[in-house]
Write a protein that binds this DNA or RNA. Structure first.
Length: 602
DNA sequence: GCCGTTTTCGGCCCGACTGTTTTCAGTCG
């Protein structure tokens, strides 16, 4: 066993960014491209779906695009010994406090260095931010050359904002905020069209800043209207083409405006991701085209001529590829696929014929949370959503409060109720009522015990059509034990679905460690399925693992994990995750008709 | 320092906004 030091991806990214900053201060002209390389490496690490430590364990650091032989050697030393001689050499002579100050938006390497140098004795390493805030309050910064009243004010505001900065927004909340602002923009008759941009449009699980695009008839008017948004606590910047406001809680909202004839280029540019755009522009450059948010520059007689682009389809077609759905734009191979005309036909919301994780209020005497809506209410609502079938998947009856016979009795009772419901559905169909689900499946979400066993006796399992299994305890087992645990649970014949497989909770809890290739293989060999849980706090499997699963032919189920009938509407978030994971209709179990699904259960 | 559909050398995405200047540097996305 190697004695190793643990660094998270975020920590590594910060180190790499600090190195880039250090090079910027030490002969930035000479190191121009080295700086870019380190910044790119930092970006890549931050966005990597794999923990760097794991890749390092497997000797695969250079698999990350942007990390080559040099940086990987330095990182290797870092993981082995906790330090890197080269990194220490590069940052030698630079005050450590400056790297702290760089966390303030608006303060980069040069400004940070200047501040720490000027206020040597006033800015300490440990309390750099607090010290800087004090200096700004005492109005000592505005007196420095190159600074002024405004920049001093900005520093104070920015520090206040990072103090109160909330964690990244979960997707539905960000959408709600964006929709409110879009509604505000649309009140202005000069706005022709608006779209969300950035990670919001790409449907990432969590959102940092909210970006919005608008095409307009009069830019100044639209920008001014945006700046008057009633909930804005301050205007960060306001130009001819873009403006930024801050909402309560420090959340930043950026607006970009453009005329309709060039709107496609703007939409493309600000939807990103940054990595997708960089890869796209590098490809275009090699073919004599230069891409920007204004359009595409084409060389003609040695001159660059701007071609305005009205739609995104036109934009991608112009550089010789298919339009790429926003959810795929992460530089994960989508550009190559678009060039070969081999993009996946992503699953759509209307393909979904069932919700396969729902908790009703039927009391199974579980130790977990019960649903709030009755089975009848849920069936009614599911019918409105157009589903053909659904599954009731309450948590298993608590093991500590029941003996085996009691558990079996409860489950038999539930079986009877579900059978009755199915009978009444049949007779309702005889009366040809529309918008009705055709079949309700009797299922259960069963805890996976730390040893991998399931706390439901055999006779209880017999009452079920199929079962979901999931982890709700002992999240910290090592990878080997955790994998063994899950595989044992999945080996029960009735266990079909591994629900919210990483057990992560966004902004709250990291996922468990599992040997995914082993899980994937087991699922394929034994016809077991992995869930994409559509609960906005979970979105689990995460998109990058969906991509891996789908590549390996693993089948996916979608379930809302709804605990009341309103939450059935969260399905679209699960679909977004599936799409970001390159899933097609064929990859998703509950796009199958009722008949096909029944066959798959056999 | 990284990388490959002009490939192992010689390039490296593109532009907006602000403050403090008096033509630009710094920062950000």
């Amino acid at each position: 066993m190697k004695n190793t030091k643990n660094f998270t991806n975020l920590e590594i990214a910060e180190i790499l960014r600090d190195i880039a900053a250090a090079y910027q201060l030490k002969n930035s002209a000479k190191n121009k491209f080295r700086i870019i390389a380190y910044e790119r490496a930092a970006d890549a690490v931050e966005h990597s779906s794999n923990e760097l430590k794991d890749l390092w364990d497997e000797g695969k650091l250079v698999d990350i695009p942007g990390i080559g032989s040099s940086i990987s050697q330095h990182l290797d030393e870092l993981f082995r010994t906790g330090r890197s001689k080269h990194f220490e050499e590069v940052t030698k002579g630079l005050p450590p406090a400056m790297f702290e100050l760089m966390k303030v938006p608006g303060i980069g390497p040069k400004t940070a260095y200047k501040l720490v140098k000027k206020f040597k004795s006033e800015i300490s390493e440990k309390n750099a931010l607090a010290d800087l805030e004090k200096l700004a309050r005492e109005e000592k910064i505005e007196k420095l050359e190159g600074f002024g009243e405004e920049s001093q004010k900005d520093i104070l505001k920015s520090i206040k904002e990072i103090k109160g900065r909330t964690v990244r927004l979960i997707l539905p909340y960000a959408y709600a905020l964006a929709e409110e602002i879009i509604a505000w923009l649309k009140q202005n008759k000069l706005v022709v069209r608006t779209d969300p941009l950035g990670s919001l449009r790409r449907k990432a699980s969590t959102i940092g800043d909210i970006d919005i695009a608008a095409s307009f008839k009069n830019p100044v008017e639209v920008i001014n209207h945006f700046a008057k948004y009633p909930k804005a606590v301050r205007i960060l910047e306001k130009g001819e083409r873009t403006a930024s406001i801050i909402l309560p809680g420090g959340r930043q909202v950026d607006l970009m405006v453009e005329t309709p004839d060039a709107y496609g280029a703007l939409l493309q540019h600000f939807t990103g991701s940054k990595h997708h755009n960089i890869a796209l522009r590098e490809y275009a450059l090699k073919h004599g085209l230069s891409l920007s948010d204004y359009g595409i520059y084409v060389k003609k007689h040695g001159k660059k001529i701007l071609k305005k682009i009205a739609t995104e389809e036109e934009f991608y077609n112009f550089i010789g590829m298919e339009w790429i759905p926003p959810e795929l734009r992460e530089d994960n191979g989508e550009i190559e696929a678009a060039l070969r005309h081999e993009l996946p036909e992503l699953v759509n919301y209307h393909d979904i014929k069932a919700d396969l994780q729902i908790h009703s209020s039927f009391d199974v005497e579980t130790s977990h949370d019960l649903g709030e809506s009755s089975m009848e209410e849920i069936i009614e609502e599911s019918g409105k959503l157009g589903y053909e079938y659904i599954a009731f998947t309450e948590h298993n009856p608590s093991k500590s409060k029941h003996n085996e016979k009691q558990i079996i009795d409860i489950l038999k009772r539930k079986r009877e109720i579900v059978d009755k419901l199915n009978y009444s559905i049949l007779t309702a169909f005889a009366r040809s009522e529309l918008h009705r689900v055709k079949e309700v499946f009797n299922s259960l979400e069963i805890d996976i015990m730390p040893d991998g066993s399931l706390p439901v006796p055999e006779a209880g399992m017999e009452t079920l059509d199929f079962a979901l299994v999931s982890i709700h305890s002992s999240f910290r087992l090592d990878r080997k034990k955790m994998t063994k645990r899950v595989l044992k649970a999945l080996s029960y014949p009735k266990a079909k679905i591994f629900a919210h497989p990483t057990a992560r909770k966004l902004n709250e809890r990291e996922g468990v460690e599992l040997d995914w290739p082993e899980i994937f293989d087991y699922c394929v060999d034994n016809n077991k399925w992995l869930e994409v849980n559509a609960d906005p706090m979970r979105l689990d499997l995460p998109d990058f693992l969906v991509h891996e699963a789908v590549k390996n032919d693993v089948k996916i189920t979608l379930g809302t994990d709804a605990h009341n009938s309103q939450c059935l509407n969260n399905m679209s978030y699960g679909v977004s995750v599936a799409r970001r994971g390159w899933a097609e209709k064929k990859d998703i179990i509950n796009t199958r008709s009722l008949k096909e699904f029944e066959n798959m259960l056999r």
